[in-house]
Amino acid sequence: MMTKRIIPCLDVKEGRVVKGIQFVELRDAGDPVELARVYDQQGADELVFLDISASVEGRKTMVDVVQAVASELAIPFTVGGGINALDDMKRILRAGADKVSLNTAAVNNPDLINEGAAFFGSQCIVIAIDAKYDSEIGTWRVYTHGGRTPTERTVIDWAKEAVERGAGEILLTSMDEDGSKKGFDIALTKAVGDAVSVPVIASGGAGNAQHFLDVFKEAKADAALAASIFHYKETGVGEVKQFLRNAEVNVR
């Protein structure tokens, strides 16, 4: 039986983890390698690194981070942020990442998905979608540029197109729930999961272990991602997994 995956997400800027990480036992809470190790020990099934560097130098530093993490970890990890071309993917994957996550660049240039999938295989290509409900059109709209720019695309159609083009996985973030800690967006996750044949990672809104159970049971998500509740130690990966185990959800 497949297990449901729990995926912590780290924001990395100029090679350092940013956005409030509260792991008091760490020597250095900004070191992505050290944090990756902590999450690995807690039983994380996978990690996502989001490069939010503003500069070219920062992006180059990310390659070093990827190498360092790859040397330390024996679980898969995905890198997203600032990947705009096949060469960017090559650089990150050769440094040791297992998958790359494309967001804005894929919306602007969907052929990038085909190129990446043809070159590295679909299993390497994660399409990240930032989704916000639009009551006027009665469905979710795709946003780019870190959720700042609305597009003409609807989430369901874009997810289907991305998979047809070769995406191996969808990382689906609900902008409506992100940061709310009220739970994942069940309706959105279910709608996308029903529409595509590849695994869907639910993201945005995790506040406690029950929320993971809800999104796995009700929306049939394959994996769920969270950042702040793990960073602030509101709950741990291990605790979430124990809760799921008690509720008879398969976890590693």
């Binding site: 995956r5 299993q123 044949s197 695994p199």
Partner: peptide
């Protein structure tokens, strides 16, 4: 296959941790 013996849909790729 796209479905298992009970007709339940299988996601492809088979991606993740299995026993």
């Amino acid at each position: 296959p796209e479905r298992d013996a009970d007709g339940e849909r299988l996601k492809v790729p088979h991606m993740g941790w299995n026993k």
